[in-house]
Write a protein that binds this DNA or RNA. Sequence first.
DNA 1: TCAGCACTTAAACAAGCGTTTTAATTGTTG
DNA 2: CAACAATTAAAACGCTTGTTTAAGTGCTGA
Lengths: 218, 218
Amino acid sequence: MSQLDTVNRILDAAEVLFAERGFTETSLRTITSTAGVNLAAVNYHFGSKKELIQAVFERFLTPFTANLDKELTRRQAQLEQSPEEQLQVDDLLQSLYRVALAGLAKEGRDPKRFMGLLGLAYTQSQGHLRRFIVSRYGASYRRFAGQLANALPQVDPVTFYWRLYFMLGATIFSLSSFDAIEAILREDFGAESSLEETLARLAPAAAAMLTAPVPKES
Amino acid sequence: MSQLDTVNRILDAAEVLFAERGFTETSLRTITSTAGVNLAAVNYHFGSKKELIQAVFERFLTPFTANLDKELTRRQAQLEQSPEEQLQVDDLLQSLYRVALAGLAKEGRDPKRFMGLLGLAYTQSQGHLRRFIVSRYGASYRRFAGQLANALPQVDPVTFYWRLYFMLGATIFSLSSFDAIEAILREDFGAESSLEETLARLAPAAAAMLTAPVPKES
DNA sequence: TCAGCACTTAAACAAGCGTTTTAATTGTTG
DNA sequence: CAACAATTAAAACGCTTGTTTAAGTGCTGA
């Protein structure tokens, strides 16, 4: 078994188990036995459990932000040629959802699992993870947020950022629990929902939240 | 030290520590030493760590759902007298946010901590917690969801339930990280946000998401 | 006064954890 | 083929975890 095999087998097993149970609930022994490798392999190849966690995120976030950056650049160039200001919000959310997430799927990485891990990163963030993500991928996030803010000139900055977090919450929360929610709806209404359909529901809903008129302060 | 003191000291310490670090990252030794009680007190009074976790949630959810139920009953009676269908969505969200959450605060329970724990319950739900919450408080949840669905007759059931989860995600996610988000906005814009102001921002944004026109299927 | 009960205390338990060590095994290169 | 480095393997390390045990304390009611 080559090194590449062992490393990827560990990453594959860790990704699934982390998303299912969380970081602390998943032991290295569970990961290595699932992956079919020796226990010491994690510390040999990654150094520590913390660094394994970061490696799992890196494998998701690097192609995700690459897809997003490429799309944002494309949009920016297109906007300079024909600066129609309408539909920018819908369009940006489409970029985020369709291009970045679907791009992940095309590379064989499950977007639902990605969202599950993102949810973990926010709630049971162990400090080192948040620092790692922000330092490594913060630039792409700020770029997306900046373009979105430009498309919403009528929304004051503070309200905009709160709504941005509302949107992130709706996205991460519902997609990280996608399978569970889908199962409930299938049982109650007999209606199956694919990830694509759900993103097609989420995009206009999130856009409506972002573009809602700002109530004047009382 | 009376029994009531010990039990409540444990619940107080556990509530804060769970919300800060999560369940598995918080040991019984940390809880008991913070509370100033003996280690064995947890197993003596609660039986196990699982049951302690449930007790922490029970102390929040019982008054929360009681406030919500009371408000839903009041609304229902009022609606039968003067059935004006407008502004129902805004009104229901006001019930959820202002009455139920602010009601918690009035009883000395921190709503932000409540949301932090709810976030944990969804992401690092250990099975037993989700079952406990659903079996104990599912009726109130379904009642609220039912009234909200009635106020949105133009939205088909499946879309409605997805949007309900979008709304829950936006709420739980942003309020559970309230302090962190508030700190970022204060640093970047010098603007302080109170919980009340944030709920006043969240309610119309969530209402806009729920009432957005449903795009016809392509 | 004393038995009975509720509670607290200190100590120990077995199990699981991440990590390290040392040795065996592979694969590569001169 | 020999020598070296990279990788795997098995075992043990020290530590923390939730839980249990057994002794001790203090109050209450007969």
